[in-house]
Simulated assay, not measured.
Amino acid sequence: MQEADFSHKSLARAVVAAATRSGEDITCDHTYVTRWLKGSIPRGNMPQFIADAIGRRLGRQLTIDDIGMGNAAVSAVQPDLGLDFADKPESTARTVTDLWRADLADAETLVRALPDSAAWNAASLRWIVAPPDGELTRSGNQAVGAVDVDMVRSTTDAFSMLDGKFGGGHARRALIQYLHTDVRPMLDGKYSDDVGRQLHSAVAEALLLAGWMSYDSGLHGIGQRYLIQALRMTQAAGDRLLGGSILSAMSHQATFLGRYQDAATLARAAYTGPGLALGPTMAAQFRAMEARALARLGDERGCDLALVEAELNPGYSAELGDLTPR
């Protein structure tokens, strides 16, 4: 408030204007501001309106963590957070920030939630048919370059190694903490379109790993949400092959949970969606994943056909043909 030269009354007016821009009609006056300064945390979308109002005056984007109201997002978290395939990359960045925060706070609504079949189907369809996003150029405060993207990838690789050696439950929380503390500011930073695409691809890989580690830990609801947001990140990055890998992971999770028809559909989307970017090895994996789901459905003919497709592919291997769990 001091930096933006806001009085109690002028901030209240700016918050009302921020809410109006978001399509909400709220009541706010100087007494509300006084309560906030004494430590009161408002409910609903009010913390975001405050951050938007102050950020607009300062000429930079602020989060609710920046204004000291991050805990409000946990108390006001909605059960459907993270299940939508957002229209804009900016919405996805806000969603993953809220997911990371809620996960670290052990928000029961999300952490112990069960997966939603409709969300899998909606996300896979949106990913296949949605038009490409526009430029990802951003003008935030923190400069982000190729070295920063490499750092995200290298850190994700390190967590992946720990996951492979000790299981998903070992360092899952540390990965989420890293994403929330170090990666979140990058998404709101300053970068070119090319760097932005690389960054979103790198974050998608990290979210894919978070999804796997959550799945391995039995936290299927939040695992599903990480995978859906990872898929949306690949849309922004234009990384169709990584998107296929994420759909394959969704298929694996769906089969494990007994959602066999969903699993088959997701595997087909994984195979279809990447188009010309799909190489022989990944094509074989996606067909094998489809066969795995069809086998559990009792569809012998469909399973045989999918396996034949995998075996006819030059990338097929005994490992890819293994239909046992991960």
Rank of each mutant, 00 (worst) to 15 (best):
A51Q: 01
D52T: 05
A53N: 00
I54M: 12
I54L: 10
I54Y: 07
G55Q: 04
R56T: 13
R57Q: 14
L58E: 04
L58N: 03
L58C: 03
G59A: 04
R60P: 11
I64P: 00
D66W: 07
I67K: 05
I67A: 02
M69K: 02
G70N: 04
N71D: 13
V74K: 06
S75T: 13
S75D: 12
A76N: 11
V77D: 02
L83Q: 09
D84G: 03
F85P: 02
F85S: 01
F85W: 01
D87Y: 11
K88G: 04
K88L: 11
P89H: 01
E90Y: 14
S91L: 07
T92Y: 05
R94E: 08
R94D: 06
T95G: 06
T97I: 06
D98V: 00
D98C: 13
W100T: 12
W100G: 06
R101N: 07
R101W: 06
A102S: 14
D103N: 04
L104V: 04
A105N: 02
A107T: 03
T109Y: 08
V111I: 13
V111D: 07
A113C: 03
D116V: 14
S117Q: 12
A122Q: 14
A123I: 05
A123P: 07
R126T: 14
G134C: 01
E135G: 15
T137F: 09
T137K: 15
T137C: 08
S139G: 11
S139P: 06
N141G: 11
N141Y: 04
A143S: 12
V144H: 03
G145S: 05
A146Q: 12
A146G: 09
A146W: 10
A146D: 14
V147S: 12
V149H: 03
D150P: 02
V152H: 09
V152M: 02
T155K: 12
T156A: 01
D157T: 09
F159R: 03
M161Y: 10
G167W: 03
